[in-house]
Simulated assay, not measured.
Amino acid sequence: MFSLFNIFRIVAFLEGLSYILLLGIATPVKYLMDDPQYVKLLGMPHGILFMAYIVLAFFLKPERNWPNKTFMFILLASIIPFGTFYVDRKYLK
């Protein structure tokens, strides 16, 4: 089955994807075309994925023995576009 680590990788990917869609598509459509429906559609799933990413990172910290500096970088990567993809490639493979 899925381990907590594999679930974290999936959530990290989906969180990063939802963030890029929110910033790259939904927000420009909202302000350029005055249509907030895409922000409403993507906002809630992104928020849930963001919270899941943070909670799962806290659960995985002792299991993976991440130093504090690495852990803080993993947490901060969730607010940087494409950050979760970098974390997956560098720390989760």
Rank of each mutant, 00 (worst) to 15 (best):
K30Q: 04
L23T: 12
R9N: 14
L76Y: 11
W66N: 02
A52W: 06
T27K: 13
I74C: 01
D35N: 14
L75R: 01
V87N: 11
P81G: 07
L22E: 06
M72N: 15
I25D: 13
I80Y: 10
L49K: 05
L32K: 09
F50H: 06
Y38Q: 13
P28G: 06
L75S: 08
P81F: 08
I10Y: 02
V39F: 04
P45V: 07
A26D: 02
S78N: 11
M33H: 12
F85V: 04
F73N: 15
K93N: 13
K93W: 06
L21P: 05
G16D: 05
L49N: 00
G24C: 02
P28A: 08
F71Q: 00
F71R: 05
Q37R: 15
M51N: 15
I80D: 06
I80R: 00
L56W: 00
S18C: 02
Y86I: 13
I7R: 02
F73A: 15
M51E: 13
V39R: 04
V55E: 10
L42I: 13
K40Y: 13
P36K: 07
V11L: 00
M1R: 09
Y38M: 12
Y53W: 00
P62D: 08
G24N: 08
D34I: 04
R89S: 13
K69V: 14
F5K: 03
M51F: 14
F73Q: 15
M1F: 14
P36N: 03
L14T: 05
F50I: 00
I48Y: 01
A52Y: 04
F71E: 11
K40M: 12
A77Y: 04
M72P: 03
V55A: 10
D35L: 12
W66H: 14
Y91R: 00
R9F: 05
